[in-house]
Nucleic acid binder design. Structure first.
Lengths: 191, 191
DNA sequence: AACCATACGGAACGCTGTTCCGCTTAACAA
DNA sequence: TTGTTAAGCGGAACAGCGTTCCGTATGGTT
């Protein structure tokens, strides 16, 4: 995927439109969720749909671009959590909490993350590439400290947490954080 | 929702078509997943789309009709598991396993279950109405026996398990059963 | 000022679920 | 057997989606 996000030496109107698009998308996502129609985003940016696809080959790429900073921040928080302790397991739970925050805060982001979405592949890949290694480090540290079982795969854990967050908004009877907490508690069970 | 499934004294061709539709839908769901287009099901049954909607007001109703027997069986398995012991917690895990089987076996069923689907509301309601009470009994028994924490809600647990099953097919790196196992292990943690 | 690659807008395409309505036909009465 | 009619059927049509395409406009350069 060619990164159309970097400033590059493109035409002024192109750069301007890209900015409008990112701003508009962020606003629309907050208001209507990540699954908002492309046409709505185009309209909010005062731009035609063709322009959207010129800048972002697919809806997923637009979503990635909008949330890139936050995903990046989450990834960088991993080592920080580990350093701040007090134990690797505590760091893991705190980091997972921040991940859950990221997903639950943005309407429909978690749902968009599932692999079998067809579209949204790019979104899934980006999250996986960036966050799985971070999670793996935390898991390894906790396992090394004997705080959790050793046979937990970072990819699976992240997918599981992501799945648990689906529909966390839009259903008052459901509390994703609580279930994630139980899942993390389950990691402590003996191998 | 009026139940168009009961035999009633309708015209012979109507009954015949309803049968074809259910058979065809079951076959198509196995082959292409629960989210297969209505047109495909109509074609497989040798029937027009209008006929599909005459018998099943919405796609969700068709899905419910196809899986009604299996959901019923799962619901009835609850008390049986409890009776067979050896402990309420063992019964709970065995019952949840059968629930997971139900979801993982049918492509895309778990995904269709999420509440915020828009369409598929009927499916969600049916599962909830039928299975939450069963799960609640199992949870209560296990809690009473002091095997698990007391503050676990049946609806939340079922939604959590359902969510964990999303995409279990179509992603070899992901093992829903394993994560459900971890979640259940988490139930044993102290209040 | 004149040129043209770059970028734009939005109609058009192919895919959904669902609705609508003119036609067919099963069921029943005479 | 034939006639009547309401139940049922088929599939065109509608609305909404992501995405593609292409004639037109324009920023940057000579």
């Amino acid at each position: 995927m060619t990164d159309t996000t970097e400033p590059g030496r493109r035409r002024a109107d192109a750069r301007r439109n890209q900015r409008s698009l990112l701003d508009a998308a962020a606003a629309v996502f907050v208001a209507s969720g990540v699954e908002a129609p492309v046409r709505d985003i185009a309209a909010a940016a005062g731009v035609g749909v063709g322009t959207v696809y010129r800048h972002f080959p697919t809806r997923a790429d637009l979503v990635v671009a909008v949330y890139r900073h936050q995903v990046e921040a989450c990834a960088e928080a991993g080592p920080v959590c580990l350093a701040e302790g007090p134990t690797p397991y505590a760091a893991l739970t705190r980091w997972i909490d921040s991940f859950v925050d990221l997903l639950v805060t943005k309407h429909g982001l978690a749902a968009a993350l599932r692999a079998d979405s067809g579209q949204f592949d790019a979104l899934h890949s980006y999250f996986v590439d960036r966050l799985v290694p971070v999670c793996a480090d935390l898991l390894a540290a906790a396992a090394e400290a004997g705080e959790i079982r050793r046979d937990v795969d970072a990819y699976q854990l992240l997918r599981g947490v992501g799945n648990l967050c689906i529909g966390a908004d839009s259903d008052p009877r459901y509390d994703a954080r609580r279930l994630v907490g139980l899942l993390l508690a389950g990691l402590r069970s003996p191998d």
